[in-house]
């Protein structure tokens, strides 16, 4: 009984958060500054990416450094539809996501038998292979990539030029989709399977969980959602090229934002992105004068400090604060 009440309170918070995001474009802070719009869009995009990774990396415990491959396939799906075939992006978005899920299953089936570091290095190797192959695959634009021409702005073509509000609602939809799916998973059977596999694959198997199937489903879902994020990224930047979407740096963003926020937690990816993206964008904007790379210096330092001192990320810090307040309240009584 107690748990159901707690769940519903959590859901209320979730709905409140969505309402908060939905009304943000109405505030003058947002509508008057295209920089603020850019930061908000990036926060929602990167938190969706991190959450997509979190399904596999956090809940299922399989640390993949290969997610930029799926992100890139999604970006290329829509890019090809728009630039090569002259279509609207929507069929390309769907096709990219489906292909990404299929590629994910095909490459992870053999890789899942590798353990620990061997698996991690295999995912690095896969990113490098895809990156180099896309560089010379001239049908998809090679190293130059795909550049969008001008089309009519609006939802049909999913591009806007004057204002970023359309993109904001687009990424909000993506955010609701990704976080909604994870919220659903958390409460349902599949989520318990995921966590069971993470906590102990042998134990889970002994209780009748088909761990290979669970891991592959998590991989496919995670790749599908990552590809949707990639499609949004391409539409937002009006272009796709291999180093932009299929690189180790992009892969690490999926991982590091989640780690920073809190691995395997529902709000972790959002908190990680909400801390990191504004930090990155604002240091780049205001500290760019003292030379390049300042945002990445801070980012690197933050990662070291968080991993070393609070491996549970911002969620861990929040938990500790909440516990301390509760304890002091209990002491007061």
């Amino acid at each position: 009984m107690n748990t159901t009440r707690k769940m519903s309170r959590k859901d209320l918070f979730w709905l409140g958060l969505l309402a908060f995001f939905a009304v943000i474009p109405l505030t003058p802070w947002f509508s008057h500054s295209s920089f603020a719009q850019h930061v908000m869009i990036q926060v929602l995009l990167y938190s969706s990416m991190a959450q997509a990774w979190n399904i596999l990396g956090g809940y299922c415990g399989q640390t993949s450094f290969g997610h930029s491959v799926f992100f890139g396939i999604g970006a290329y799906g829509t890019g090809m539809a728009v630039v090569k075939f002259g279509l609207i992006p929507w069929p390309g978005i769907l096709a990219g996501a489906v292909i990404a899920a299929m590629v994910a299953v095909a490459i992870s089936y053999p890789c899942f038998k590798l353990k620990g570091h061997y698996f991690a290095i295999a995912t690095f190797a896969i990113v490098e292979i895809f990156n180099r192959l896309f560089m010379v695959w001239y049908w998809v634009g090679g190293a130059i990539g795909l550049d969008y021409g001008f089309t009519e702005p609006g939802w049909k073509n999913f591009v806007w030029y004057q204002s970023k509000v359309g993109y904001f609602y687009g990424v909000l939809l993506l955010f609701v989709l990704v976080f909604g799916i994870v919220r659903w998973i958390e409460k349902h059977r599949f989520g318990f399977y995921l966590r069971a596999v993470r906590e102990g694959q042998e134990t889970a198997e002994s209780l009748g969980v088909n761990s290979t199937r669970v891991k592959l489903s998590a991989m496919a879902l995670s790749a599908f959602l990552a590809a949707l994020c990639g499609a949004f990224f391409a539409q937002y930047n009006y272009r796709v090229d291999p180093p932009m979407v299929m690189s180790l740096d992009m892969s690490m963003k999926f991982v590091l934002i989640t780690i920073l926020g809190g691995l395997g937690t529902f709000y972790g990816p959002l908190l990680g992105a909400a801390l990191l993206i504004p930090l990155q964008e604002y240091t780049r904007a205001y500290l760019g004068g003292i030379g390049g790379g300042v945002d990445l210096i801070i980012f690197g330092l933050l990662i070291v400090v968080v991993v070393v001192y609070q491996p549970r990320g911002i969620m861990g810090i929040l938990d500790r604060i909440v516990n301390r307040i509760r304890r002091s309240e209990g002491g007061g009584k």
Binding site: L256, G293, V294, L296, I297, F299, G300, L301, I303, V304
Partner: peptide, 8 residues
């Protein structure tokens, strides 16, 4: 994280 720090 350390490699990012040193590189940058």
């Amino acid at each position: 994280g350390l490699s990012m720090l040193i590189k940058n």
